[in-house]
Design a protein around this nucleic acid. Structure first.
Lengths: 219, 219
DNA sequence: ACATGCCGTTCAGCTTGTTGTCAGGAAACA
DNA sequence: TGTTTCCTGACAACAAGCTGAACGGCATGT
């Protein structure tokens, strides 16, 4: 399921994003309404989470505009406690539901599940890397439909490359991905994992940038 | 389709009844839970519309009781705007969907259609997993027509895999399915249940992804 | 009340896959 | 050519997962 999160609070936004991800949906998170408009125009979502108080304009007119154009994507609005009238207006403007901040993540899960139950089916976006199909939400990699089994470590590394295409990731950065801040490591572990990844996915998927790190293959 | 409507508001109730009738379904409308219990015991319905606020007792315990007795009739709960927690509890208690009062009659139609699609003669409810036939509505699994008896926990787990094919479900997620957010557990219960599931359904139906979780088998 | 059977959980011992390390070789660069 | 950096096969240690067995709870039937 694809979810668009429109929320300017970075702390709350990150928490919500992570929770949705944890339920294996894919999330696009934007902090401004104009961005949101671009995203909605470009992709089709199964659910929109809309904060009503945003820096660049109120969410209500945005929602009305959306509905006016015939968009029927389920929208759940997020409001603060003291904005009761907003809530009513929101529902009248075409929102399907609302949540009062601060809300429990369990509550979010329940709403997600409710939407997912009647959701029409935009599959999670697939990223194509050469002949590979990567599903970040499901944590799977396929070649010609065939599942390529990656281990936990291998997946964490590869995910890093897919999320930052074209960017060089140093060994240090990769180590930090693998070992959250604590364990020091002193050997060529990263090299070994890269080697194993290449063996499974194809040599050309990961480029070596000598002295700097690694990068997702161009072709 | 046969619908049981449990709603004490005479105005809303009549409107809903008429709408359902207009869609060529048959409706039994009751205003109290004890009546509802009698009806359910006597006849078999395809859908229950349950108002959570009734004069003779709360609807939630009623719903839980129903599910506890193995009744899998789809239930859509009706709640007022200010009863958010009820809604969440309702979904956790086994409701399939919810609608917020006051709701549009078009919305009702849409939900009815969704339920009808999902639960009546459509090819949809039968899922094929390898040599297995899974009926999500009836909670049954068959191999060559022969029923494979699953226990409650086993079914909950397996249902999770069937509903999220291709996705990795972590042990934590599976635990949350089994113990709705309350009970902590500390042992290899999940592993044991998985083991028993595999013994009954076939080893290859559930893949282990070490360090990450389990996933429905591909082939 | 007692016996019976089923189910869920726990434990212990076993099996298996992952992963960090190393070492020798290959490639890039000066 | 020498030096640095990286690659990769092999391997042992360990953690993760598997599963038979046993225990206790709950419900049902006698």
């Amino acid at each position: 399921m694809r979810v668009l999160l429109i929320e300017d609070d970075t702390v709350l936004g990150a928490a919500v994003r992570d929770q949705i991800k944890a339920e294996a949906h894919s999330v696009d998170w934007v902090t401004r309404l104009d961005e949101a408009g671009d995203h909605i125009a470009a992709a089709s979502y199964d659910l929109v989470l809309l904060d009503l108080m945003l820096p660049d304009g109120r969410g209500l007119p945005f929602l009305r505009e959306l509905r006016k154009h015939g968009d029927v994507t389920p929208v759940i609005i997020l409001t603060a406690l003291d904005q009761i009238s907003d809530r009513i207006d929101g529902l009248n403007a075409g929102a399907d539901d609302y949540m009062v901040k601060p809300f429990d993540l369990c509550e979010l899960s329940a709403r997600l599940a409710a939407v997912a139950r009647r959701y029409t089916g935009n599959p999670n976006p697939l990223v194509n890397i050469g002949d590979l199909e990567v599903d970040l939400a499901a944590r799977s990699v396929r070649r010609q439909g065939k599942l390529l089994p990656l281990t936990a470590r291998e997946w964490v590394l590869f995910e890093g490359f897919v999320q930052h295409p074209g960017q060089i990731l140093s060994k240090t950065q990769l180590e930090e991905r693998l070992y959250a801040f604590d364990t020091e490591i002193e050997s060529n572990t990263i090299e070994v994992h890269i080697s194993r990844l290449r063996k499974k996915l194809g040599r050309e998927k990961i480029d070596t940038v000598r002295g700097m790190g690694y990068r997702l293959g161009e072709a």
